[in-house]
Nucleic acid binder design. Structure first.
Lengths: 221, 221
DNA sequence: GCTATATTCAATCTATTGCTTGATTAGTTG
DNA sequence: CAACTAATCAAGCAATAGATTGAATATAGC
């Protein structure tokens, strides 16, 4: 094998993995799976794709060895293959944020419009938690919460929020979070909470960012 | 803007950046530019592409904001847009190595065949350098050497090696490196050196990996 | 201004990708 | 074993990307 052939073969492999990330829907799938494993139907529902199309995208991700599977009875559960994949996704995101102002602009326009309040950063949350009077709410589905959440957070999935709003201390500051800086669940939660008269804010991060900041995650219910 | 539209728009941006990495030739270009800036013709030559094709790939990279340019007289010099891009490339590589054994297998087969000696790691080089008797040779082109090299390394571009082999202390251990773990220049250098009777080894890394390991780089000649 | 050189653009062809629809396979439950 | 559900596969279509060729543009030096 000549030097040129070797180079071509190696870069081909790198490009193949990058190709797996080169479809918006597949990025969205990785984003979902980074929160914990899921069955195909659940992925299809969350991403708004047909089962067949979802399955095809999952095959592509699996051929790139980015995800792996486990069969449980009638269902097939997908998960990210390992931590390097989550790292790669985070890195892709960082690269995009640094390079394409459009993402930040989009986020600002959307979140500013939806929840009408300044987001809170991780450092700020840690600080305010220490001084008390802060309630942290994780508005993701229960399974994602159990796969890893911020210590002390309570889980109220978005669709239960309106009926469980009384569980919250109305004199406290509520900080809601979901999957990360671009997840829309927490924005909608904050919007609801503010309409109900609470002092609510969105955390500009999720468990992945919390973990990347070197802070501990809690498991289980 | 609805939640779904927002999600689509954001993931679209991530995917667009990933797409820029999804062609082997563009990955190779990023790999080159990670070593320092280059003019188009030099990139075309190094990658074995025509000027027109090279230019087109560079446009794609620039539209994704991964590279930026500078005009100097009659030439246009390209460079990586910033450190996040190099990080992203490193991350892509890590993801590929962890997931696709094929790359490691390819590398082992190729390098084992070409230079016929065990590669040296960064930690091992640092250790052996401390105890003396080691000469570190950077076999990349001069411009890349000047953009950043291992402290104490001497620069002998591969094409000058055969004529400058006498400059080396034949009683010392020679460690040669080039652009990184998959760069073929150092393997060819080691092969030449061993045929000349020297105790030569390939460093399984380049300046980027050295830097990522938290070690200092030297600039200039 | 004219010529040479470096780069980019435009047109074209071919190959690949994403998505839809309908059929098929694997596993569970009655 | 039959009926059902979850997931995958296969075929086909439209849209997109990569590579080649030849023309166009920008700058330097005369």
């Amino acid at each position: 094998m000549q030097g040129r052939e070797f180079k071509d073969a190696v870069f081909e492999q790198f490009a193949r993995v990058a190709s797996a990330f080169s479809s918006p829907k597949r990025v969205e799938i990785v984003d979902l799976l980074a929160q914990g494993e899921r069955a195909v139907e659940s992925i299809a529902e969350a991403t708004g794709m047909t089962m067949a199309n979802t399955s095809r995208h999952l095959q592509v991700l699996r051929q790139a060895n980015l995800v792996s599977t486990r069969r449980q009875g009638i269902q097939v559960w997908y998960r990210v293959a390992d931590a390097a994949v989550v790292d790669g996704y985070r890195s892709l995101r960082a690269m995009t944020e640094a390079r394409i102002g459009e993402v930040s602009a989009l986020a600002e326009a959307f979140f500013g419009h939806v929840d009408g309040a300044e987001p809170v950063g991780i450092a700020e949350l840690v600080e305010r938690s220490d001084s008390g009077g802060v309630v942290v709410v994780d508005v993701r589905p229960r399974l994602e919460f159990e796969a890893g959440h911020l210590p002390g957070a309570i889980n109220i999935p978005l669709e239960e929020l309106s009926s469980r709003i009384d569980e919250l201390d109305h004199s406290a500051t509520v900080v809601a979070y979901c999957r990360g800086p671009y997840c829309v669940l927490s924005a909608q939660a904050v919007s609801q909470l503010r309409h109900a008269g609470l002092d609510a804010h969105r955390l500009d991060a999720g468990p992945l960012e919390w973990d990347a900041a070197g802070l501990p995650l809690a498991l289980g219910a």
